[in-house]
Structures are given as structure tokens and as C-alpha cells.
Design a protein around this nucleic acid. Structure first.
Lengths: 223, 223
DNA sequence: CCATAATATGACCAGGCGGTCACATTATGA
DNA sequence: TCATAATGTGACCGCCTGGTCATATTATGG
């Protein structure tokens, strides 16, 4: 998780941070809009006002540029999750779920295009090293909630008639789908999540977590 | 919902049903693998062993071919849902949810490529008449569950502290995401839904519906 | 049989793609 | 100052795309 997918050429490293950022930004934008295969290097250099030859001085090829962008993305995600989730293991299972969901929302709000890149990777063929890329992101959720669910189940906080793995799947599915709906029009089920005020969004999240809590906790612990 | 998105040329209608089907099949296959924009008419005619000119005798252009394919898809979906869901309005809310989910699974099993086309449309830009296409599919779920949820809430079968619209969102999200996981590798949360036997799949579905039931019904009606 | 209509064909077009490379420009440091 | 290294440039390449069209083939029915 900590190693890089690819390395830019030395020429790119020598660039000023501003220029490096602007290049990454333009690339993210293009990959977010078009996905990997349709993304056009000609477009990217046109946006940047640099020549195509320069881009090839910075990265070996399209794939290397894309992997560099994805590296940036995973680093950002890591930061957000780490910052949003307290960290001590004694938090309530569903409180943590709520925190993770909020972290996701915050991430999408500040890096909407990165999330689009991720969604494109999920549903596009022939993305270089796709399995590996997806795994890097999804393991955040699965490896994070897995042990947490095991722990919660041991403490009797989760209903015991459903294996913890399924609990993780359900939790992951709900959170992931909520974020999809937030980021993608048409998937919000008429809830208009996209343009929603922070307050109303909180309500939606509360409802969802409430349902998860009631549905996943042992019977009898009601509300 | 009943009108067609597009009409093939008369030449296509004159074709034998076998040839029409083989053409649609080849097109579905290409659109499923590549999405709309990346799909190649050259590929399609190569697969079919016909000339490009012929394809243009059947359809005005790429968009018309695609819309015809999507028309086929929605018709198929309608059939499956209609066939799988009993229909009388007196069924238990969550039993219906289970039926719809099973209908979705059955549909993906027998038309995996159609579902891929739909997923591609959801996450691709510049798909012609995308809003309209997505709406045609999603309204099945929303318009179907909406009234059903209102009814169930009136009967006190659903918890009253969450608006029925949110209930529909949650239900729709869970079902939709389950189908995504079934159709798409990486999204099954390590549950290996894809290659799963019918029996074990039933278990997974039962778990999910059980959680929804417990989570969504009024407190006190436990189990 | 033969004229006409319907259908099939694939070379061709303009445009875009990822990638290359000979050359122009700028930075470096002795 | 000036040789050398580093960096920037865009015309160019082969390939593929959606779409066209003059021409060849086949079906039709009087």
C-alpha cells in the first residue's frame, strides 16, 4: 500500500512544485472526464499549453502518467480517512461507519475529479493494472471494517446470526453506494444528494446509519 | 416507457429474425466490452462478417444502433421483473424486495452483457440520451418501490421515523449495489458473489433482506 | 428474360490517437 | 564566454475511428 505504482522521469521531479501540480491537475481532469482509454494526451498538453514532447520528457507514456495520477489519489484518500476517523479502537462500530462515510463525502467535495477517476476505473476495461488499483482503494474499507466487525461481534454489538464478512459487505455496499449516489447523478434515487446542504446531508447519513444499526445489531438492543 | 428510443431502417426490419438477432448480439457484446464511445463499428462488422456499408443500411449511425440495443435491453428487463414479481399488491414489502433482487440476478445470469452495457452507461460521459436511458431503467425500481413503500408505511410495516423516500433510496441502493457486486468483479467485497452457487447466493440474499427488514421495520416487531 | 428495385461491398475520407525524433532553446558551471 | 548538458518543441508516423458512396450483386415481378 505504501509503495508507488510508478515513477515519473527525473525531468518531472526537477520541475517546480507548481508546474508538477498543474500537470497532475490537468491529467486528473482529463482522466476523470474520459476514463483511461478515451483520455487524450493531446488534450492534456493543449490544456497545459505545453508541447507533447515535454509530456514525454516527464512520463514514459500514457500509462505512467495515469499511474502517477492514481498514486496521488490513493495518498489523498489515505490522508482523509486517517484525518476523519479518530483512530482509537474503542469507538462504537456505527459511529466509525458514520465517520468513514463523512470522510468519503469530504473527500469527494474537495477532490471530485479524483473520485470520478476511481469510478471510471471500476467500470472500464483495459485500464492498466486495474485489479491492483481497485484493490488499493477497496482494501481501505475491507481491511478496515473487517477486524472492526470481528471485534464488534466479539463484544456482542453485532447480531450473531450473520457472519461478520457479510456484515462488512453490507456496510461497505451501503457506504460505497451512498458515495456513488453523491458523486454520480442518476444514482441518488431521487434524493438529490449531489447539491445537498451539509445539514440535510447529515440527516440522510443519520437515517442510513440508523437503519444499519437497527438492522445489524442483535435483536433486543432496539434503539 | 413503452415507446421506442429509435427505429432501425426498413432494411433491417426486412432481415430474417436470425440475422437481426445476430447483429444485435454482436452489437451488445461490443458495447458491453467497450462502452458507447470506445465501441467500434469496424469491430462489430468484423465479428459479423458483413461489410460496414451493410450496417449503415440497417441503422443510420452508431447512435441509432446503440439506442436499438438499449431498447432491447429495457424490454428484456421489463419481462424479467414482470415474470419474477407475483404482482398482487398484498405481498410483504421485503418479500417483494427479495423477488426483485432475484429477478435482477436471473436477468444478469441470462443476459450478462446487457447489464454491462447498462453499467457502462451509468459511468460513461457523452452517451447519447444518457439521462433518458438511465431513467428508463431506474424508474423500474423507484416508481415500483415508491408506492409500495408508501403503502407499507400506511400499514405500519415500516418504521415511521424515516420518510418513505429515504426507505426507497436505501432499499434501491442495497439492491442495486448487490447486483453491481454480482456483475462486477472487485465490488463484491471479497464475498465472491460472481461464481457463487445458487444455494449460497440465496443465503447472501437472505442475510441482506433480513438486515433490511430488521433495520427498516418499526422497532418492537423484532424478527 | 429482363428491367428495376433492393441490398451488399470495401476503398476511401477527414480527423484523432499514442508515440517519436531531429532540432531549437535555455541552464549550467568551468 | 562558451562548450556541454538539460529541457522544450511540433511536424510527423502508423493506426484506428465513424461515416460515405460508386459500384457490384441479388431479388422481384411483369
Amino acid at each position: 500500500m505504501d509503495t508507488f505504482l510508478t515513477q515519473p522521469k527525473q525531468t518531472f521531479v526537477n520541475l517546480s512544485p507548481e508546474k508538477r501540480e498543474s500537470i497532475v491537475r490537468a491529467a486528473v481532469s482529463e482522466f476523470a472526464e474520459q476514463g483511461y482509454q478515451r483520455a487524450s494526451l493531446n488534450n492534456i498538453v493543449k490544456r497545459l499549453g505545453i508541447s507533447k514532447g515535454s509530456l514525454y520528457q516527464y512520463f514514459d507514456n500514457k500509462e505512467a502518467l495515469f499511474l502517477h495520477v492514481f498514486d496521488h489519489f490513493t495518498q489523498q484518500v489515505k490522508q482523509y480517512v486517517k484525518a476523519s476517523v479518530g483512530g482509537n479502537g474503542r469507538d462504537d462500530f456505527f459511529v466509525v461507519a458514520r465517520q468513514v462515510l463523512l470522510a468519503g463525502i469530504a473527500f469527494i467535495d474537495s477532490h471530485p475529479e479524483y473520485f470520478q477517476v476511481y469510478l471510471k476505473v471500476l467500470f472500464e476495461r483495459d485500464v492498466p493494472r486495474r485489479e491492483e488499483l481497485v484493490a488499493r482503494v477497496r482494501l481501505f474499507s475491507l481491511e478496515y471494517f473487517g477486524p472492526l466487525a470481528d471485534l464488534a461481534m466479539g463484544q456482542g454489538v453485532l447480531r450473531s446470526d450473520i457472519p461478520s464478512q457479510k456484515v462488512v459487505f453490507i456496510l461497505d455496499a451501503m457506504l460505497d453506494r451512498f458515495l456513488q449516489g453523491y458523486a454520480q447523478p442518476y444514482l441518488d434515487g431521487g434524493l438529490a444528494l449531489a447539491g445537498m446542504s451539509a445539514g440535510r446531508l447529515d440527516d440522510e447519513i443519520d437515517s442510513m446509519v440508523a437503519v444499519l444499526r437497527t438492522g445489524l445489531q442483535p435483536s433486543g438492543n432496539g434503539e
